[in-house]
C-alpha cells in the first residue's frame, strides 16, 4: 500500500481530480470536504502529505494550516496548498494571524495556484514523498 495523501477541498470536482492524480501515481488518497473534517482525518489517518485548499466552508485552510503547524504531533507532516487564492494573500493572512498573537508558522512546502496541470501536481507530490 502506497503512502497516504489527505485531500482537503470543498469542491467535489477538485477532489475527484486530485484523487485521480494521487491514485494514478501509486499513492492512497483520503478525502475531506472542509477544514474541520480535515483536522479529524489528519489525526485519525496520520497521512504522509496534506493537499489543502484555502477557501472552504466551516474551518478554512488558513486555520487548518495553523493548527497543523503549531501542533507538536502534526507539524512535521508536509503540506501542499492548492488554491484559487494567490500565495501572497495566503501568506499575508498568516502574517496577520501571527501578529494578532499567534505563533509564527513556517511557509508551506509547496504552494500551487489553481488551475494546476495534473503533471505538475504529480511531480510535486513525488518530489516530497519520493
Amino acid at each position: 500500500m502506497g503512502k497516504k495523501v489527505l485531500i482537503v477541498d470543498d469542491d467535489p470536482d477538485v477532489r475527484l481530480f486530485n484523487v485521480t492524480v494521487v491514485e494514478e501515481n501509486g499513492y492512497t488518497p483520503i478525502e475531506a470536504a472542509n477544514g474541520e473534517e480535515g483536522l479529524e482525518k489528519v489525526k485519525k489517518e496520520k497521512p504522509d502529505l496534506v493537499l489543502l485548499d484555502v477557501l472552504m466552508p466551516k474551518q478554512s485552510g488558513i486555520r487548518l494550516y495553523r493548527e497543523l503547524k503549531t501542533s507538536k504531533a502534526l507539524k512535521d507532516i508536509p503540506v501542499v496548498i492548492l488554491s484559487g487564492i494567490a500565495k501572497r494573500t495566503f501568506l499575508r493572512s498568516q502574517k496577520a494571524l501571527t501578529e494578532f498573537g499567534g505563533e509564527e508558522v513556517p511557509e508551506p512546502e509547496v504552494y500551487l495556484e489553481k488551475p494546476v496541470e495534473p503533471e505538475e501536481l504529480a511531480q510535486t507530490i513525488k518530489g516530497i514523498l519520493g
Binding site: 477538485v14 485521480t20 489553481k114 488551475p115 495534473p118
Partner: peptide
Amino acid sequence: MAHCIKNILHGFKGGSYLVDI
C-alpha cells in the same frame, strides 16, 4: 471573479485529465 474562474478552470483541467486517462 478571478477566484471563481480559477476554480472552474481547475474543474475543466480535472475533467479533461480524467477523460485523457
